[in-house]
Computed example of a mutant assay.
Amino acid sequence: MNKKNILIVILILYRFNHLFAEAQRSAKLVAYDSIVVPGQEVILSAKLEKKILFFRPDVKGEKLFFYIDNKNMGESVTDNDGFAYLPCTIIKPGIFELTVKVSTASEFFSDTASAKIFCSDKKKPTIIVDIDHTVADVSWLGYITRSNIKVKPLKNAPEILQKLSKKYNIIFVTKREDVFLRKTKDWLKMYKFPDAPVFFWDWGNYPISSAKYKSERIKKLKQIWKNISIGIGDRDTDIEAYLENGMKVIKIGKENKIIPNVTFVSDWEEIGNSLFGK
C-alpha cells in the first residue's frame, strides 16, 4: 500500500472514530405533560436516554434543569431509569409551558424538551380519549410507518373535541410508545385538536397489556382530577379500562349487543349529539 492510500485509510478511521464518539454522547431528552389542581403540588418529569441506532439505554446521574414559562424552577438528577423529577406548586388555573434542558456541563448533548402543565379544578368533568382508530384514522402499525401528513383524522373529530373542550377537560391516553411523543403531538396540533395533555406508554414502566396500562394510568389521573367520568375509544381493551374506573364509555363501532354504561356509535357526529344532549 502506497503512502497516499495509507493516508486515506488513516483519515477514514479518524472520521469514523470521531462519528462514533459523537454517537456515544448523543442523547434524547423527553419531557412529559402533567395535570394538577390549583394550589397543589405537581411532580414534573423528564427522561434522558442515549441514542444508539435502535437502542435507547437510560442515562443516569445527569443534571436536568426545569423551566415553567421560561422561569427556572430548579434542577434534578436522572435516576437509574433515566428519569428526573421536580416537585412544584401551580397556584392558578391555566396551561403552562414546561421546558427541560440538559446541563451544559454534561458529557451528553440533546435538544431541549418541551411539555405542558394543565391546571384545572378537580371537579370539572373530564373525558379520556384514545388516539388510533378513535381520532386518527390509522392503526398503530400504520402510524409508525407513515408521515403525519398521510394520517387523516376521523371525520369531525377535531371539531367535536374543540366544542367539548369548552365544557370538559380533555385527556388523550394512548398505547403509543413515548418515542412517538413529538410526532403525535405535532399531528394533533396540525389538525387543530384542542390543547390537551397526552399520556404515552413507556416500555419497562407499564404493563404490556393495553387494558391494564390504560386502567393503571387512568386510576392515577383520577387521583388528581377527580371527575374523569367519560372514556372514548374503539377497542374492547378501552371499554375494559374505562369500566374498571367507573366511567361512562363511548365506543366507536356499532355492535349488536348491550353492555351497561357503554354506548356504541358510528362516528364523531353521534358522539357530539350524545354528549351535547341533542
Score class of each variant (00 low, 15 high):
Leu48Thr: 01
Asp130Trp: 07
Thr134Tyr: 04
Ala136Val: 04
Gln223Phe: 11
Val138Met: 12
Glu269Lys: 12
Leu7Cys: 07
His133Cys: 15
Ala21Lys: 14
Glu97Arg: 13
Pro194Ser: 04
Tyr168Trp: 02
Val9Met: 12
Leu188Tyr: 00
Lys226Val: 06
Cys119Lys: 05
Asp186Glu: 15
Cys119Val: 15
Ala115Gly: 05
Lys185Asn: 14
Ala31Val: 01
Lys167Asp: 14
Lys3Gly: 07
Phe55Pro: 02
Phe96Glu: 08
Tyr14Thr: 14
Glu270Phe: 09
Ile224Cys: 09
Thr112Arg: 13
Asn70Pro: 07
Gly233Leu: 06
Lys214Val: 09
Leu275Tyr: 00
Val198Leu: 04
Leu188Gly: 01
Leu13Cys: 11
Thr89Leu: 13
Asp33Ala: 05
Gly233Tyr: 06
Glu22Cys: 06
Val129Ser: 13
Leu181His: 08
Leu98Glu: 10
Ile52Gln: 10
Val135Phe: 00
Lys123Gly: 09
Leu48Asp: 07
Asp137Gln: 08
Ile68Gln: 09
Gly142Thr: 07
Arg217Met: 14
Asp81Phe: 15
Ile43Asp: 08
Leu141Pro: 03
Ser76Phe: 02
Asp238Trp: 02
Asp178Phe: 11
Lys175Phe: 11
Ile12Trp: 02
Val102Thr: 11
Leu243Thr: 06
Trp187Cys: 01
Pro153His: 08
Asp137Thr: 01
Leu53Ile: 10
Ala241Lys: 01
Val262Leu: 02
Ala27Gly: 04
Phe66His: 03
Ala113Cys: 03
Trp225Val: 08
Ile144Trp: 05
Phe276Ser: 01
Ala136Pro: 01
Glu49Cys: 13
Ile250Ala: 00
Val59Gln: 03
Asn156Phe: 13
Asp137Trp: 00
Asp79Met: 08
Ala21Met: 11
Lys166Ala: 10
Trp140Asp: 11
Val138Gln: 10
Trp201Phe: 15
Val37Thr: 15
Lys28Met: 12
Asn17Trp: 15
Glu244Val: 00
Lys220Cys: 15
Asp137Gly: 08
Gly253Ile: 08
Ile6Gln: 15
Ile127Tyr: 06
Phe200Trp: 00
Thr237Asp: 12
Glu62Asn: 06
Lys71Thr: 10
Lys116Tyr: 13
Ser106Val: 06
Leu154Ile: 08
Tyr206Gln: 04
Ile230Ala: 09
Lys92Cys: 03
Val102Gln: 03
Glu159Tyr: 04
Ser76Gly: 06
Pro125Met: 10
Trp201Pro: 03
Ile171Leu: 09
Leu221Met: 09
Leu86Glu: 05
Thr263Ser: 14
Glu269Met: 13
Val262Pro: 10
Ile258Asp: 11
Ile144Thr: 08
Glu244Tyr: 06
Arg235Phe: 14
Asp186Ile: 07
Lys183Ala: 11
Ile171Gly: 03
Ala105Cys: 07
Ile259Ala: 01
Lys124Thr: 13
Glu107His: 09
Ile43Tyr: 10
Val138Ser: 13
Arg182Lys: 14
Tyr143Met: 12
Ser114Ala: 12
Lys152Ile: 07
Pro93Cys: 03
Asn80Lys: 15
Pro125Cys: 15
Ile144Lys: 08
Phe200Gly: 09
Phe109Gln: 04
Ser274Met: 09
Trp225Pro: 10
Asp130Ile: 07
Ile8Val: 14
Cys119Phe: 03
Arg146Asn: 11
